[in-house]
Amino acid sequence: MIVPLSCPDIGNRERDLINEVLNSNVLSIGPKIALFERLVAEYLQVKEAVAVNSGTSGLHLAVRALGIGEGDEVITTPFSFISSSNCLIFEKARPVFADIDPVTFNIDPEQIESRITPKTRAILPVHVFGRPADMDTIFKIATKKGIFVIEDACEAIGASYHGKKVGTECDAGVFAFYPNKQITTGEGGIITTNNSDVASLCRSMRNQGRSEEDGGWLNHCRLGYNYRLDELSAALGVAQIERIDEILAKRESAARAYSVKLKKIKGVMTPNETPGVRISWFVYVVSLAHGIDRNSVMNHLQKNGIGCRPYFQPLHLQPFYRKSFGYSEGDYPNTERISSSTLALPFFNDITEQQMDYVVDVLQQAIELVSC
């Protein structure tokens, strides 16, 4: 049996809307992007949503729109995909890492305040694997210190923290829609904010610095980029956001089924769920007990047709970050320990019981082999 790590969920509604775009001859800057933005804003209950061509682009524009630049510092997590820190370096700001909570894998709020200096302009939490960070504490710190909060919610659309959806109460939130995400536009992302000035700046900068209020196609009011989301991608997004509740329910059901099935395997720790926190299940990641060789386990899974991947590699130990900032092993021990033990198993909307049973059985074989 072949079980991929991820698989997009594309149906007839998606195909119909894409054909509408193809038949319209409007492939960019058309009605579908406006509709997609409106539907996302309504779902998240925010004033503004600005669609862009990737989550990375969204993070970059959020940083620029808030005026974060050279010499500024932003406190963030070293346990993340690299774009959450690269977006700061794009603007010559410095990411200042705080270690993670070993249970949630999110930034540990208790380590944030001690890292704040006169140069600190923002906190950038990442909702890792779709699990909300401790936003109550983060907002309290930000308010006390008078700094911004940018939420990297790229993995977490639909997640909520004590009844409040992530990415909705911050200065800017960013979601992403790569094919392995809960909903997809192929490539794409969206910036959310309740600040109309931030939204206006992001719309201008995504479109080569053109202004919506004045000037023509060749009149550029500020430095900008080609970060636009095309109409075909937006059409796909419209169909996906229309059924997001169904999609999230499927993924939640699959995650809970996995957790039950995996209880029989000694040495495999499953994700825990916290009261008051709704996880939007992006990936299903387990942790292997100390002494279990993860590479050997992965090799056995892959030889048996099962997609798997380590999540994440510590950002501070990436070659570019070592060279640029002088990081080394031991700087963020929780991140390093968790990173060395985590393993993403196949996970997608329509994963079947048969596929999950196969993954669990082969994983058990792998654990038994490496434990001999």
Rank of each mutant, 00 (worst) to 15 (best):
R15A: 15
D16L: 06
D16T: 11
E20G: 08
I29R: 13
L39V: 12
Q45H: 11
E48A: 11
V50H: 04
A51N: 04
A65V: 05
G67V: 05
I68P: 00
I68Y: 03
I68S: 10
E70D: 14
I75M: 06
T76F: 01
I82T: 13
I82L: 13
S83T: 15
S84R: 01
F90N: 01
D99E: 06
I107W: 02
D108H: 10
P109G: 11
I116W: 00
T117D: 13
L124N: 02
A133I: 02
D136A: 15
F139Y: 15
K140C: 14
I150F: 04
E155T: 14
E155H: 12
S160H: 07
Y161T: 09
V166F: 07
G167M: 05
F175D: 02
N180C: 04
N195Q: 08
A199W: 00
S200V: 08
L201S: 07
R210S: 07
S211E: 00
E212N: 11
E213G: 12
N219H: 13
A234Y: 00
I241D: 04
I241M: 08
E246V: 15
R251V: 03
E252D: 15
A255F: 02
V268C: 07
T270E: 00
V277Y: 05
R278M: 07
I279M: 08
V285H: 00
R294M: 09
I306H: 03
R309H: 11
F320L: 13
F320I: 13
N334F: 07
T335N: 07
T335P: 01
T342E: 08
L345M: 06
Q354Y: 05
Q355E: 15
V360T: 08
L363G: 02
Q364F: 01
V370T: 09
S371K: 12
